[in-house]
């Protein structure tokens, strides 16, 4: 199964998911996912029936430092894109 890994965070206005190669943005998670999906479907060579996984690991730097002692983790998401 093909996959990419991204860091995800919120910059105060938008959700951002990125790695060294790409940056995706969206006002909502729906919009973000759509952008990721659109990119994956247009660029990756997927055969019919393939599942493409997008792992999104939350970047804890988004959480203010004073909260981190209480909670170390926000969320990790997996987006499955089926052709």
């Amino acid at each position: 199964m093909k996959a990419i890994r991204l860091n995800i965070w919120h910059d105060g206005r938008q959700w951002v998911a990125s790695n060294d190669d790409f940056t995706f943005r969206g006002n909502s998670l729906d919009e973000l996912d759509q952008n990721v999906r659109r990119y994956v479907l247009s660029r990756e060579s997927l055969s019919r029936g393939d599942t493409f996984r997008v792992y999104m690991y939350f970047d804890n730097r988004t959480i203010p430092e004073w909260i981190r002692p209480y909670a170390q983790h926000y969320f990790d998401r997996i987006l499955e894109i089926k052709t």
């Binding site: 965070w9 919120h10 910059d11 105060g12 951002v16 990125s18 790695n19 060294d20 190669d21 790409f22 940056t23 730097r61 988004t62 959480i63 203010p64 430092e65």
Partner: peptide, 10 residues
């Protein structure tokens, strides 16, 4: 193509 700079915390 290029990741943008971001703030450390909010």
């Amino acid at each position: 193509e290029k990741a943008t700079e971001r703030k450390e915390t909010l």
